[in-house]
């Protein structure tokens, strides 16, 4: 895939209102040349998958700080598969304890970025994955 037209959905599942990170990442990815759609707060798994399908995105970035990732991420991954879009690269960030990371990777979330991760690192990661 050409690097120029990577399309990303930045999504806020769960009920928490912390979207500083989501917005900063959204802007950073835009400035790196990607097309970015931000869902806004309090999105259900259904809404997120629907938006991803409608917008035909290559990447979904899930930002969550409420602690509900263990409950909501599997639903999102299932619904993506149901929609025939398990090719989408799914990444996550927020407050996600270290010992939850493997479980999330096991259901298909490619990488979990911790607080303090640079935008540059995320951009590189997405580009690399898109190249493969």
């Amino acid at each position: 895939m050409s690097q120029d037209n990577i399309k990303v959905l930045i999504a806020k599942p769960g009920l928490d209102g912390h979207d500083r990170g989501a917005k900063v990442i959204a802007r950073g990815l835009k400035e790196a040349g990607m097309e970015v759609v931000y869902t806004g707060l309090r999105q259900t798994p259904e809404q997120i998958v629907k938006a991803a399908v409608q917008e035909d995105v290559d990447v979904i970035g899930l930002s969550i700080l409420s602690g509900a990732h263990g409950e909501l991420f599997p639903v999102i991954m299932d619904k993506l598969t149901e929609s025939g879009r398990n090719d989408v690269l799914v990444l996550a960030g927020g407050t996600i304890p270290d010992d939850d990371h493997q479980k999330l990777k096991d259901i298909g979330i490619r990488e979990i970025f911790k607080p303090g991760t640079s935008i540059a690192k995320i951009v590189d990661f997405i580009r690399q994955e898109m190249d493969e």
Binding site: G14, L15, D16, R42, T44, S66, G67, A68, E71, L72
Partner: peptide, 10 residues
């Protein structure tokens, strides 16, 4: 419905 996974978390 929207409380799924959020009860007692934060």
């Amino acid at each position: 419905d929207l409380a799924r996974g959020e009860v007692g978390r934060v």
